[in-house]
Design a protein around this nucleic acid. Sequence first.
DNA 1: TCAAAATGTTGGCGTTGCATACATTGTTAT
DNA 2: ATAACAATGTATGCAACGCCAACATTTTGA
Lengths: 191, 191
Amino acid sequence: MAYHHGDLRAALLAAAEDALRTRGPGELSLRELAREVGVSPAAPSRHFRTKQALLDALAMEGYDRLTAVLGPALTGGSFADRLNALIRSYVTFVTENVALHELMFSRKHDPSAPPELIAATHRLMGLALGVIEDGQRRGEVRAGPALELAVPLAAVLQGLADLTSHGGLPDAKAEDALRETIAFTLRGYAP
Amino acid sequence: MAYHHGDLRAALLAAAEDALRTRGPGELSLRELAREVGVSPAAPSRHFRTKQALLDALAMEGYDRLTAVLGPALTGGSFADRLNALIRSYVTFVTENVALHELMFSRKHDPSAPPELIAATHRLMGLALGVIEDGQRRGEVRAGPALELAVPLAAVLQGLADLTSHGGLPDAKAEDALRETIAFTLRGYAP
DNA sequence: TCAAAATGTTGGCGTTGCATACATTGTTAT
DNA sequence: ATAACAATGTATGCAACGCCAACATTTTGA
């Protein structure tokens, strides 16, 4: 039995995300994670000074994965293509990572959140902004201040993700609702 | 000093909401609430069997207040008027009750949430649905299955509230973004 | 009036996050 | 090579928490 774990930090993050999926956030205990990983209760503190720090790191990982997923959706094609890909991949990510997504965005209400997290949300907003600006250059999106125009898109993304992940809609209807929402968004942005 | 408090339940809820405003949710402690109200640590358990039960009750109170605020927005006037009033009053409520709103909607991801809470969210969705259906009757909203059409509205509400309450936008820009989002929504629903 | 229900109190149990002090292993400079 | 040092993990303890069980005090109503 090695005294040193090898890569405790990664192991903790993995265990934490697993716990996040099965149980909710909030039911997540540092001591329990330590137990699962097979390490003493105080060991995690070497890598995460506080429980919140671990959650923040987990959220950052979530942002990285999200932007990675969203990246391909934003290259090439018409505005309609990009919008379609953006919305669909966003919704997919959220439904597949409900608790993680909730963690990422519940944290941003706290002014004491680490700057990296704030930056990550801004970067995400920047993605939406880029899609709008590109659409305007193509003449497929109405003119106007792009930053204001991007707000409804961000809102639709956030809200739609929330609605579908919640599962209030039966699965069959979900696709219809998704399609309708995309069409709705396109109408809103039409020149 | 009276042995019985008189209305502990209400006092606890009030203290809880206050604590929710100042500190976040999660930093909310039953024992501390009991202390603030001037009662023994185990007293709250007579009115809320568990901490979650108290939070749920608080969330229900939030739904009641929200629907009360939204009610006036939904009577009379054109579709544009109703939509405008609905979005604005929703955003106002959320910005004035950030933590409460977060509590209300974070809870709905949990399948073990009490039925009354689930019913409350459905009732809220029903409000949006009503606005759409009325708009259709007036010929001011495009034809189509109202339930699908209502999804983008609910999404915009949820997402916009999230964006503005987070405060990412400077206050001056917030009004512009709000106006733009309302116009965007009207275009999306235009026949 | 007096038994039962409602409401509070006391005390205790197990768990948690965190701080402190100590132990072991890796790394690096001499 | 080895001694100093940093990194990482352990042991222990503390205060607070949620919850439970047993007991006390009121209020209610038959």
